[in-house]
Design a protein around this nucleic acid. Structure first.
Length: 218
DNA sequence: AAAACGGGGGC
DNA sequence: GCCCCAGTTTT
């Protein structure tokens, strides 16, 4: 029996995920402004809420210039349903102003420029690189961090360490699509709580957590 | 590295 | 009422 490389093992598991969550493994590109803003809205926020809130926000502020000129109180109202909206509202407006003043009204496609924007951390910056600019990046959210550790692919404390470790273990062509795939799996099966639904999980045979559950990782 | 931030929806 | 959730920033 052939010995599988780490890349081959990871690919096998992600093929199963892609088959389980049809369509979730492919990357659909969007307009950079919309990707950036909807990704900020999505921070700590469920997908359904994100969709509804984003729709409202874009109806009022269709581009960077209109967002930069927004009244904070109005934006705050539109953001109801998105977590931490009181922090997000002023940051989104100041972000839009910075994009106008320092980036020629464009969303930068550079990780460091993105990280320098208010309210943009590593997770959001990588999401923008992936969904706005089709770059090969890994967007590590709580689900990917948790599941990569449970599967035994990495053994890391922070999302940044996970990103670095995954770039070694995961074949490059799977990086970008891993985001949606693991999000879907994390909210359906591999729950953050102490009781992930391992008995229903298609990855059991490859998973160290399913074989020996330990404290949940978030 | 850990704590603070902070609120809507589902049960 | 209680618990959970596509993070970022500050200590």
């Amino acid at each position: 029996m052939a010995i599988l490389t780490a890349h081959e093992r990871v690919r096998t598991v992600m093929d199963v995920l892609a088959a389980t969550y049809r369509g979730r493994g492919s990357v659909e590109l969007g307009e950079p402004y919309r990707v950036l803003v909807s990704t900020v809205i999505s921070q700590r926020t469920r997908e359904e809420q994100t969709t509804a809130v984003s729709k409202r926000v874009f109806a009022h502020y269709p581009d960077i210039a209109t967002l930069a000129a927004a009244q904070e109180s109005e934006l705050l109202g539109l953001l109801i349903g998105s977590e931490y909206r009181e922090a997000k509202a002023p940051r989104l407006i100041s972000m839009a102003k910075i994009l106008l003043e320092k980036h020629g009204g464009q969303v930068p496609d550079d990780i460091d420029a993105l990280l320098a924007l208010p309210g943009i951390g590593r997770k959001t910056a990588n999401c923008v690189l992936i969904y706005a600019f089709n770059r090969e990046a890994i967007c590590v959210d709580t689900h990917l961090h948790k599941i990569a550790n449970r599967l035994g692919w990495v053994s890391t404390k922070t999302p940044e360490q996970t990103e670095k470790a995954l770039k070694i273990v995961m074949p490059r062509d799977l990086w970008a699509g891993s985001n949606r795939l693991f999000l879907q799996h994390g909210r359906a099966i591999c729950l953050s709580s102490a009781l992930p639904l391992c008995s229903r999980c298609p990855l059991q045979t490859w998973c160290t957590y399913a074989q020996e559950p330990t404290a949940p990782q978030r």
